[in-house]
């Protein structure tokens, strides 16, 4: 065994430090939502688009429809389960794309310095100041409805969110003497960035991505609510809320409130998780100095 005493102590201390209850709940909810989305065809009690006009707007608790039905008699539970697929996948796409773009732009700006850095940074400031939702709506106006265009637009809109953090961390971390040691040892700049810079920034990137996921989910739901996102018969939570508008006016809010609750719970969970990841990072840095 080559484990040193301090390393052993650090490992056990890390394991023993209790995870807050909120974080556990958030992880549990997100896991549930993911499983539901993946296994929707197996788990859902009804097909998502099976209408039954005789059985419309049934309240939650109705036999066979635990969460009730919407105005055309479709099972709300099944539709939430199927809707989770697009509602979770689309923001994930935004986060991955903006993460890649932001990391690339941030590293490039930090590495280039000078006027290139200034141009990239001001560019990010402008995109950052521009409301992402408006950007997505403009893109839809040009390319027509559907999810691909808004996903790309939001990914661009969220790029500064990641890019700014990556840039400042890369500058800060890049100024550490060990970076020069790698240069003297003959390592290429990008290989050092990939092998040492990024891993040291990864926790912050994850925290940032979690927050971006929440924003993207809300933005995409808003687009779908406005009829600019998914097209029927596809459904996500946003379009379900939109379709429930008339029912809500009739005093039967369930078919709209429940997908709304799904949005809120997911966003809150993701934010709690993101904050926890970010907090763990600053805690580690404090312990390190």
């Amino acid at each position: 065994m080559t484990l040193t005493i301090p390393a052993l102590r650090a490992a056990t201390a890390g394991r023993r430090r209790r995870r807050p209850l909120g974080v556990t709940l958030a992880v549990a909810f997100l896991a549930l939502a993911t499983v539901t989305a993946v296994l929707a065809p197996v788990l859902a009690p009804h097909p998502p688009d099976a209408t039954s006009l005789l059985n419309s707007l049934a309240p939650p608790g109705t036999e066979g429809h635990p969460l009730g039905t919407d105005s055309t008699g479709r099972d709300v539970l099944s539709r939430i389960m199927y809707g989770a697929r697009l509602s979770l996948l689309a923001p994930l796409g935004v986060v991955l794309l903006s993460g890649l773009l932001g990391t690339a732009v941030g590293l490039l700006a930090a590495r280039a310095g000078g006027w290139a850095d200034a141009v990239l940074s001001r560019g990010m400031d402008i995109v950052f100041a521009f409301p992402s939702l408006l950007l997505a709506m403009l893109v839809v106006a040009v390319f027509g409805p559907g999810l691909t265009a808004p996903i790309c637009a939001l990914a661009v809109g969220y790029t500064p969110f990641v890019g700014r953090v990556v840039r400042s961390m890369a500058i800060q971390e890049g100024a550490r003497p060990y970076m020069e040691c790698y240069r003297v040892m003959g390592f290429g700049e990008w290989s050092v960035a990939l092998r040492h810079l990024l891993p040291n920034m990864l926790p912050v990137l994850l925290a940032q991505s979690a927050l971006a996921f929440g924003y993207a989910l809300v933005d995409l739901a808003a687009l779908s609510y406005l009829g600019l996102g998914v097209r029927p018969p596809d459904a996500d939570w946003g379009s379900m809320i939109a379709e429930a508008r008339s029912a809500i006016l009739q005093g039967e809010p369930w078919s709209g409130l429940l997908p709304g609750l799904a949005v809120i719970l997911t966003v809150v969970s993701v934010n709690v998780l993101g904050e926890h990841l970010g907090g763990a990072v600053s805690g580690k840095q404090r312990a390190g100095t």
Partner: peptide, 21 residues
């Protein structure tokens, strides 16, 4: 790389010379 194989350098600050991770 060739230069690195001919010549290496030790810095004053032994604290910062390693990836802390």
């Amino acid at each position: 790389r060739w230069r690195a194989r001919q010549l290496q350098m030790i810095f004053q600050d032994p604290y910062g010379s390693f990836d802390p991770r």
